[in-house]
Design a protein around this nucleic acid. Sequence first.
DNA 1: CCATTGTGCAACTAAAAGGTTGCATTAACG
DNA 2: CGTTAATGCAACCTTTTAGTTGCACAATGG
Lengths: 110, 110
Amino acid sequence: MWPKSVALRKSAPIFAALGDETRLRLIALLCAGGALSISQLTAGSDITRQAVTKHLQVLADAGLVCDIKQGRERLWEFEPTQLDEARRSLDTIAQQWDQALSKLKSALER
Amino acid sequence: MWPKSVALRKSAPIFAALGDETRLRLIALLCAGGALSISQLTAGSDITRQAVTKHLQVLADAGLVCDIKQGRERLWEFEPTQLDEARRSLDTIAQQWDQALSKLKSALER
DNA sequence: CCATTGTGCAACTAAAAGGTTGCATTAACG
DNA sequence: CGTTAATGCAACCTTTTAGTTGCACAATGG
C-alpha cells in the first residue's frame, strides 16, 4: 500500500531544508552574490550570526551549499546539484499526476 | 542586504510541507490513486490514523491537497497548483544561479 | 604586541512538530 | 434500533527546531 521509494527518502531532507524563509533568503543571496562569509550573510538580517551559522549548517547537511575556509573567514557558496534533485522529484510527482489524469480520462471515455 | 521577496515567503511553507517523508508518500499515493479516504491512506502504514490526519492537514494548509466530504468518509485528493508554484520557485533559483555564473564567466573573460 | 574582526563551541530556552491515547460523534447497514 | 466503521476533537508526551547568550580562539593590521 505505502510506497517505500528511495527517491522520496532522499528528497524529503532537501525540501525540509528549503522549507524555511530564512534559508531560502540565504540561498537567494548566495545565488546572486557568489561566495559570502557568515558575517556578510548576517549583516542586515535581524537574527544573530550564530543563527545564520546554524541555518547554513542545515543547508550544508542537505547538500545545498558548501563552505571554503579562507584565512579567518569561512566562505559559503551555493551548490546546485541537490536543487536539481529536488526539481526532478517535483517533476516526477507532476508527471505521475498527469499520467493518472489521462488514465482516468481515457477510462471515462470508453 | 537581505531580500524580502514575497515569492520566498509564499514558497517556504510549500517546501516545508514537502519536507517530510510521510507526507511525500501521501502525495505519491494521492497522485496515483485518485481520491482516498483517511482509513485507506492509513492502511499499511506504521503510524496511527490521527497522525495521518495531521499530515493531511499540513498538506492542506500548504494547498497541496484538498478534501471532499462524502457520506461518513472524507476523501482527499492531490491539488497540483501549489506544486507548480514550488517548481517555478526552484526554476527561479536555478535561473538566477545560471545568470550569476554566466556573468562571472564573462567578467573573467575580458 | 595589542586591539579588532570573524568564527567556533556549548548551554539554555521557547515553541513547534510528530506522534500517541482516549473518548465523542456521525453515518451506513442489517 | 443497535452495531460497526470512519472521523473529529482534545490532552498529552517527546524530540527537533529556531533562536539566544556567553566565552574562547584564531587571524589580521597597525
